[in-house]
Amino acid sequence: MALKPVRSLGNALGVLIGVSMAAEVVAAITSVLAALSLSAYDPATRYESVPLTTAEAVDAVTALAWYLPILASAITFIVWLFRTRHNAEVLCAVRHRRARGWLIAGWIVPVVNLWFPRQVVDDIWRASDPSTPVDRITLDELTRSGLVKAWWVSWLVWLIGDRVVTRMTLGGETVNDQVHASLVASVSAVPFLLAGVLAILVVRRVTRFQQLRGSESAGSTPWASPAVQL
């Protein structure tokens, strides 16, 4: 089977992640401004009785606009995963731990979405790594990527923080509650930005691995897609 191009897709994904990170910075700033605008009121005042401030309105619009680059990045990342998974199976005989369907389902199925996506990326990384023998069958004893682990941990930290912010925002009854929610939302930008930088590095490294391995195997007979463990 022929390898699928991933360099241009990886570059596009890097740009989209960068735009998402910029949107997150803007959202963090508007969250702080919203908190400052609310601090003019008595902290014990019921939030529903306070008129909408300009800063809050801008923050709400920014939050909605934030989803656009995130959605584009998510779609592109899934496409990139399918292409790199295909190439990994062509370039190396190693069996992946998850079937291809989990490249999408792994992100949305509750509970398993806490570790399946990392396993998918980690297996692609190890199968693509030029140091992995092309005839290797299992992933046992192969070193897992520290970069992939750091990316996934930072992503989970942001995900948890985002859930906390949502609960605080929906459950906050006083001005003080909403101020705290806005401040926590701004702080949660830190793990998001870290995850973004690490994701770009992971994409670049896997893309580079596959380019190197592809050039080495040029003219040789590619491996048939191996079976995967469910």
Results as ranks from 00 to 15, higher is better:
72 A>L: 03
77 F>V: 10
112 V>T: 06
73 S>W: 00
98 R>V: 11
81 L>V: 05
124 I>D: 10
142 L>Q: 00
88 A>M: 11
148 V>N: 12
147 L>G: 02
136 R>T: 15
145 S>H: 09
96 H>S: 04
123 D>M: 02
117 P>L: 10
144 R>N: 10
77 F>G: 14
107 W>A: 07
85 R>Y: 06
145 S>V: 03
135 D>M: 04
120 V>P: 05
95 R>K: 13
138 T>K: 12
130 P>Q: 04
92 C>Q: 02
126 R>G: 11
104 I>Q: 09
100 R>S: 15
140 D>L: 08
100 R>H: 11
138 T>L: 11
141 E>D: 14
109 V>D: 06
95 R>P: 04
76 T>G: 02
94 V>M: 12
87 N>V: 02
92 C>T: 14
93 A>N: 05
126 R>K: 15
98 R>C: 14
97 R>L: 04
139 L>H: 13
117 P>T: 08
86 H>G: 09
114 L>S: 09
86 H>P: 06
111 V>D: 10
139 L>Q: 13
148 V>Q: 03
103 L>P: 00
98 R>K: 15
100 R>V: 15
121 V>F: 06
83 R>I: 01
149 K>Y: 05
96 H>V: 08
93 A>F: 06
98 R>W: 11
116 F>R: 07
71 L>R: 00
71 L>E: 02
100 R>W: 15
133 P>M: 14
135 D>V: 02
150 A>E: 03
